[in-house]
Amino acid sequence: MQRCAWCSDDPLYIHYHDHEWGVPSRDPQVLFEFLLLEAFQAGLSWITVLRKRERYRQVLFGFDPQRLAQLSDAEIDQLMQDPGIIRNRRKLEAVRNNARAWLQLEDPAAFIWSFVDGRPLINHFTTREQVPAVTAEAEAMSRALKKAGFSFVGPTICYAYMQACGLVMDHTTDCHRHAPLAAAAADAALIRVH
Rank of each mutant, 00 (worst) to 15 (best):
W6P: 03
L121K: 10
V95T: 09
Q104F: 01
I191W: 05
E75Q: 14
R100T: 10
R3T: 10
F115H: 07
W46M: 05
F40K: 09
S151V: 12
T172W: 00
H178E: 10
H178P: 00
G84S: 08
N98G: 11
A144T: 07
R3E: 12
G43V: 13
L181G: 08
L68A: 07
G84C: 05
Y56H: 13
W21M: 03
A133D: 06
F40A: 01
N97R: 13
L31G: 02
A183W: 10
H17D: 09
P180E: 01
L44D: 04
A110F: 09
H194Y: 13
A42F: 03
W46Q: 08
R89Q: 05
I14A: 12
S72D: 11
L12Q: 08
E93R: 12
F34W: 12
A69H: 01
L105Y: 05
I112V: 14
F32N: 02
R53I: 04
T126R: 15
A184G: 01
P155K: 07
E33L: 04
A140C: 04
L103I: 00
T173W: 00
L12E: 14
R90H: 13
E38R: 03
L103S: 07
W6F: 06
M1G: 13
A69Y: 02
V23F: 13
I122W: 06
K52G: 03
C7V: 12
E75T: 06
V95M: 06
V59K: 08
V134T: 14
D27G: 02
H124P: 08
D117K: 11
R57W: 15
I85R: 09
R143T: 11
F61A: 15
Q29E: 15
P28F: 10
G43R: 03
A182E: 14
I191P: 05
Q41E: 12
D73V: 14
E139L: 14
P155L: 04
F152T: 02
L145S: 05
L181N: 05
L190N: 04
W21S: 05
F125K: 00
I191A: 15
S142V: 07
Y159E: 01
Q104Y: 06
C175M: 13
R90D: 14
F32E: 05
W6T: 04
F34M: 09
P120I: 15
L167T: 00
D27Q: 09
K91R: 14
A160S: 12
A94Q: 05
E93Q: 08
R90K: 14
A39N: 10
A140R: 07
W102M: 00
F152P: 01
C175K: 12
Y16C: 03
L92C: 05
A101M: 02
A74G: 01
V131Y: 11
A138M: 00
T172S: 05
L167P: 01
T172N: 05
I14T: 05
P132V: 03
A74D: 13
H19I: 10
T126Q: 15
P11W: 11
E137F: 13
K52Y: 07
A184Q: 04
I76A: 07
V153L: 09
F125W: 13
S142D: 10
V134W: 07
A136I: 04
P132R: 13
D107P: 11
L44F: 15
F150G: 06
G43Y: 01
W6N: 10
E54D: 14
